Computed example of a mutant assay.
Amino acid sequence: MIVTNTPGYRHIFREIWRPAALLFVWDVIVTVTYYVVPFTAPSLPLTLFGTALALFLGFRSNSAYQRWWEGRVLWGQMINASRSLARQARNYLPDEAKDLKRTIVLRQIAYVNALRCQLRRQPSDGEVLRFLSRGEADFALGRVNVANGIVDGTGRRINGARAEGWIDTIQQASMESILVDIANAQGGMERLKNMPLPSQYRFFPTIFTHLLCILLPIGLVDTLGFATPLGSSIAGLMFLVVLAIGDDLVDPFANTVHDVPLSAMCRTIEIDLLQAIGDPAPEPLRADAQGVLW
Results as ranks from 00 to 15, higher is better:
residue 229 P to K: 09
residue 188 G to E: 02
residue 187 G to N: 07
residue 216 L to Y: 11
residue 176 E to V: 15
residue 169 T to M: 10
residue 187 G to S: 07
residue 234 I to L: 14
residue 189 M to N: 05
residue 258 H to I: 09
residue 243 L to S: 00
residue 205 P to Q: 06
residue 188 G to K: 01
residue 227 A to G: 06
residue 210 H to I: 06
residue 181 D to R: 12
residue 218 I to W: 11
residue 194 N to K: 08
residue 174 S to F: 07
residue 166 W to Y: 11
residue 180 V to T: 11
residue 171 Q to N: 07
residue 189 M to W: 10
residue 268 T to F: 11
residue 221 V to F: 09
residue 164 E to Y: 15
residue 208 F to C: 07
residue 189 M to S: 10
residue 246 G to N: 05
residue 161 A to K: 02
residue 153 G to W: 06
residue 232 S to M: 06
residue 200 Q to L: 06
residue 171 Q to M: 12
residue 201 Y to M: 10
residue 233 S to C: 05
residue 155 G to P: 05
residue 211 L to I: 09
residue 193 K to N: 03
residue 175 M to N: 12
residue 213 C to E: 02
residue 168 D to V: 07
residue 249 L to H: 02
residue 195 M to T: 14
residue 206 T to D: 08
residue 238 M to C: 12
residue 183 A to C: 09
residue 247 D to W: 08
residue 176 E to R: 11
residue 231 G to Q: 06
residue 200 Q to W: 12
residue 222 D to S: 14
residue 212 L to V: 01
residue 165 G to I: 04
residue 174 S to L: 12
residue 245 I to V: 14
residue 177 S to R: 13
residue 203 F to C: 02
residue 167 I to F: 01
residue 254 A to Q: 09
residue 188 G to W: 02
residue 206 T to K: 02
residue 160 G to C: 04
residue 246 G to A: 13
residue 218 I to R: 01
residue 257 V to C: 00
residue 154 T to W: 00
residue 206 T to G: 07
residue 243 L to R: 00
residue 209 T to L: 06
residue 214 I to W: 10
residue 170 I to M: 08
residue 178 I to L: 12
residue 226 F to S: 08
residue 184 N to G: 11
residue 225 G to F: 11
residue 197 L to W: 06
residue 153 G to V: 04
residue 257 V to K: 13
residue 245 I to P: 00
residue 208 F to A: 12
residue 184 N to E: 15
residue 181 D to E: 14
residue 176 E to P: 00
residue 219 G to K: 02
residue 167 I to V: 07
residue 198 P to Y: 08
residue 158 I to C: 03
residue 217 P to F: 05
residue 236 G to C: 08
residue 182 I to M: 14
residue 247 D to I: 01
residue 207 I to A: 06
residue 221 V to G: 01
residue 190 E to R: 12
residue 228 T to E: 14
residue 215 L to W: 07
residue 248 D to E: 09
residue 223 T to G: 03
residue 246 G to T: 04
residue 256 T to V: 01
residue 152 D to S: 13
residue 230 L to M: 13
residue 233 S to H: 03
residue 240 L to T: 00
residue 258 H to K: 10
residue 188 G to V: 08
residue 160 G to K: 12
residue 259 D to L: 03
residue 220 L to V: 04
residue 208 F to S: 04
residue 254 A to I: 04
residue 244 A to K: 14
residue 175 M to P: 08
residue 164 E to D: 15
residue 256 T to P: 00
residue 251 D to M: 06
residue 268 T to Q: 15
residue 191 R to P: 01
residue 188 G to T: 04
residue 150 I to N: 09
residue 168 D to Y: 01
residue 263 S to W: 13
residue 204 F to Y: 15
residue 233 S to D: 05
residue 164 E to M: 15
residue 174 S to M: 11
residue 180 V to I: 15
residue 193 K to T: 13
residue 162 R to Q: 13
residue 240 L to G: 03
residue 152 D to A: 15
residue 253 F to A: 00
residue 168 D to F: 06
residue 234 I to H: 02
residue 264 A to S: 10
residue 209 T to Y: 04
residue 220 L to R: 00
residue 204 F to V: 14
residue 170 I to N: 12
residue 215 L to F: 14
